[in-house]
Write a protein that binds this DNA or RNA. Structure first.
Ligand SMILES: [Zn+2]
Ligand SMILES: [Zn+2]
Ligand SMILES: [Zn+2]
Ligand SMILES: [Zn+2]
Lengths: 134, 134
DNA sequence: ACTGTAAGTGAAAAATATTTTCATTTAGCA
DNA sequence: TGCTAAATGAAAATATTTTTCACTTACAGT
């Protein structure tokens, strides 16, 4: 329920469509906007899916994963430990990888470049066992 | 010239449009397909830019950088050492970061998951000194 | 509970991005 | 030089995301 409190605190309303998207994302996978829209059987507009994802991302409830094929996927991250992903280039399957050692790099780069680092993205790409056989 | 030999060896022809794209990318920045098209003053079709980038990527001459805003940028990497990027979320500026410590992680993950790892993407995001002032 | 109102919604349109189609052109080999 | 498969580009198709705007709704204040 932390998510709804966060949404309220930011001055946004708790609406039906927003709860639908939240619940859908909480199932734990990494979805595209279209998959969310279709998974919810068009009980809301695709426009609203995009707008909701924008807000949830801004509030840190959802994170965006940009893949090298140009697609964007969204993940509900509240209560999850920071992690990265392993993506199968054959079937698109996404595994979560525990742990992250990028924080040190962030600090080093911050000092070197005078950038204020806000985050990072790391994905590994490969072929899953099943796709290796094909 | 390694690039043209690679293209030939793969059975593709060396054409005017392909040389234009190669030369444009060699200037060293990280461009979108549209920037390449417009930078070349429409002396070739946008379709050809996309097709050429696809081939160059397949041959490892060019690499794709997927940003969390959904955009794709392309970089000529032949002769460059493997590296990652620091992206300013304010102005879009991209710095190159030397070195990479992800190879170890790749091996660890390969063992853990039985995936065959083909590569990885790592980008840091932040605000450049100039954008911090705004 | 009722009401007012600013925020949210969704259909449609617009804008943007990428891929496909297909008639024409061209690189590179015999 | 001529042949042919590959490449090209204009146009159309498809896909993705944003904007517009009239209507609806959450919820703060009574
Ligand atoms: Zn995840
Ligand atoms: Zn991390
Ligand atoms: Zn680079
Ligand atoms: Zn690396």
């Amino acid at each position: 329920m932390k998510d709804k409190a966060t949404i309220k605190k930011a001055g946004y309303k708790i609406t039906g469509p927003r709860q639908l998207v939240l619940d859908f994302l909480k199932s734990g996978e990494h979805y595209t906007a279209k998959e969310i829209y279709e998974g919810l059987e068009k009980t809301l507009g695709l426009t609203t899916v995009y707008r909701t994802l924008e807000i949830l991302t801004e509030l840190g409830i959802v994170e965006t994963i940009a893949l090298t094929d140009g697609s964007l996927r969204y993940e509900y991250v509240l209560g999850k430990k920071h992690h990265h992903h392993l993506v199968c280039t054959g079937c698109g399957d996404i595994c979560e990888l525990d742990g992250c050692a990028i924080k040190d790099l962030e600090e080093k780069v911050a000092k070197q470049t005078a950038y204020v680092i806000s985050g990072h993205a790391l994905e590994l790409y490969g072929l899953c066992p099943r796709c290796q056989k094909k």
